[in-house]
């Protein structure tokens, strides 16, 4: 029994990708697999291996690690887009997420139409969305571009819109992946202020970043992943210091 009930609990989670299998499967490959079954094994790739941690309600967690560490895989498991091969994940609360550039946007739709689609997919009701529409547009600072198909947007505009939707769905858990680094300095500052505000309202916050500075300033806990394994989990400052110096802690 802990004092604060965890809002996210990840228990012995592993995620396997089968390199041979996990691409859409073509007939001649299926035949080859059948014939070579005895001699060739699937090349298993474990993007995450036996990962356990929890995040208390209102806590904030930064995830650091190099390319291919399993950070993005972990996020897609947390938002429920993908499912673990083994282990369990419990996430109890409404999630607002911005994964990579332009979370779930359709290039042919305008910014406004994408807000509708994206917010309703996040589980917002029609009345909630129409109430928040102007706030979302204001925050994104897209002005007249809001009625232009987003395939004409720059990557910075894309992120501004994605971030603006993510923070306006009243998330109990806010998940941001790198993306913020794309916006300009003013927008970054505004976003960070808003994240602080959402955090102080009691929301849980998770960020993935290459930048140790972002994690240190925004998170109280941090998690260091390397090749799918948990290297270190603890105070943000300690984990970041260890990660920055590249020294693996003594296990």
């Amino acid at each position: 029994m802990t004092l604060t009930e965890p809002i996210i609990r990840v228990d012995k989670v592993s995620k396997r990708f089968r390199l041979r299998l996990q691409r859409p499967f073509i007939l001649h490959e299926a035949l080859r697999r059948l014939l070579l079954r005895s001699t060739q094994k699937d090349e298993d790739f474990w993007a995450l291996k036996d990962l356990s941690f929890s995040v208390p309600k209102g806590g904030s967690l930064g995830i650091v690690g190099g390319n291919g560490a399993g950070k993005s895989t972990l996020l897609s498991l947390l938002i429920g887009a993908s499912h673990p091969t083994s282990g369990t994940i419990m996430v109890s609360g409404k999630v607002g997420a911005l994964l990579e550039l332009g979370a779930g946007f359709h290039p042919d739709l305008t910014g406004r139409e994408n807000i509708l689609l994206n917010a309703s997919l996040s589980g917002l009701s029609q009345s909630d969305i129409s109430r928040k529409m102007s706030d979302i547009i204001d925050f994104s600072e897209l002005g007249d571009f809001i009625d232009v198909p987003i395939r004409n947007y720059s990557s910075g505009m894309n992120v501004r819109l994605g971030f603006s939707v993510a923070i306006h769905v009243d998330p109990e858990i806010l998940i941001i992946d790198e993306a913020l680094s794309v916006g300009d300095a003013d927008f970054q500052k505004k976003s960070l202020d808003r994240i602080q505000q959402i955090k102080s309202n009691g929301a849980t916050f998770i960020v993935v970043s290459h930048s140790v500075g972002t994690v240190e300033s925004l998170c109280d806990q941090a998690l260091w992943l390397d090749h799918g394994k948990l290297i270190m989990h603890g105070e943000a400052s300690e984990v970041c210091a260890a990660y920055a110096s590249g020294s693996f802690p003594q296990a």
Binding site: A81, A103, H106, L121
Partner: peptide
């Protein structure tokens, strides 16, 4: 795929 990979529904 853009929305399926990035959202849960």
């Amino acid at each position: 795929s853009q929305i399926i990979k990035k959202m849960s529904f």
